[in-house]
């Protein structure tokens, strides 16, 4: 693959190499791109213009911190990064995501951010129990808790408040959506929905990392339009959009993932997500 007269140089920023990264490396090589793997744990990331060179970069760091900070470095050199620091920061912070989506009228579960037990109790009395308590950042369902009554909410908030780190002093509280034993993960690449799955579980947390079972799902127009609207709001070229099905309100956007895993999507749908991402990344370089 050539950009003008030269090979397209693709930098992939990564820490842990999962199946997804191996699939992506192969996809770039199959396209004939020049691949530069940047393992951020051992590679200094310059924060000045000209510090790094590539036509385009794909961000695949598992660590949120490494993803955002290393993206700043690539952007300092004028390299387009998929996804940009704006998209990464937006999707990392659940309150920021909720705020931007709300401004555009995108349906979501009702959510609050609180900084004290007192405020959490007020929220719960408005939403009614059970309520879901989440850290403002994180995924795989980690540290996500269900408070079924005031006693449980007190316990969760008091425990969180005593954890070290500023991130445990703010809490994202969300209404509990009575979804039908599943949610939907939509994979967006560029301006297309390339695949979608149901994540089914008897547990209320349906992440595949928490045991949710993936099943292929063919998205209809409504899901496609909603997912692409989300993309318009948060930006980004590769996104995992998580949807709930509410019996009364229809589809609700729960979260947006800016460095999505896709091994289960690819496995159950048969869609070559890695190649779709690689093709899009190379196209971005050619623009």
């Amino acid at each position: 693959m050539r950009c003008g007269s030269a090979l397209v140089q693709v930098a992939v920023l990564h820490d842990i190499v999962r199946l997804e990264e191996k699939l992506l490396f192969n996809a770039f090589l199959n396209l004939g791109a020049s691949l530069r793997r940047i393992y951020v744990k051992s590679s200094p990331i310059p924060l000045f213009r000209g510090g790094l060179s590539a036509d385009v970069a794909l961000q695949r760091c598992l660590s949120h911190t490494a993803a955002i900070e290393s993206t700043f470095g690539l952007e300092a050199s004028g390299i387009p990064v998929i996804n940009s620091s704006f998209t990464l920061n937006t999707c990392l912070d659940k309150a920021w995501t909720a705020s931007l989506l709300a401004k555009e009228g995108i349906p979501q579960p009702k959510s609050f951010v609180v900084f004290s037990l007192e405020a959490a109790l007020k929220v719960a009395s408005e939403l009614t129990y059970p309520v879901v308590v989440k850290p403002l950042s994180g995924s795989w369902g980690a540290l996500v808790s269900l408070a079924r009554d005031e006693e449980e909410l007190r316990t969760i908030i008091e425990h969180r408040m005593r954890l070290p780190g500023k991130e445990s002093k703010a809490h994202f509280i969300q209404e509990f959506v009575r979804k039908p034993g599943r949610d939907i993960r939509v994979t967006v690449v560029g301006d297309e929905v390339v695949a979608a799955i149901y994540r089914k579980s008897r547990h209320w947390i349906t992440n595949t990392a928490r045991g949710g079972v993936a099943e292929a799902f063919k998205p209809g127009d409504e899901v496609v339009e909603l997912s692409l609207k989300v993309r318009e709001v948060v930006g980004g070229d590769v996104l995992g959009v998580d949807l709930f099905e509410d019996p009364e309100r229809g589809y609700l956007v729960n979260e947006v993932n800016a460095v999505p895993e896709f091994k289960n999507v690819q496995r159950v749908t048969g869609v070559d997500v890695a190649s779709a991402i690689a093709k899009h990344v190379v196209e971005v370089a050619k623009k």
């Binding site: 842990i16 795989w140 980690a142 992440n207 800016a258 999505p260 896709f262």
Partner: peptide
């Protein structure tokens, strides 16, 4: 364990940092 390179040598270190993650 996570694989690290030191020059031409391969080294293994205990994996860390999976709590700060993106996911599926």
């Amino acid at each position: 364990l996570e694989v690290r390179f030191e020059g031409n040598a391969v080294r293994l270190v205990p994996l860390d940092g999976v709590a700060d993650d993106w996911g599926e």
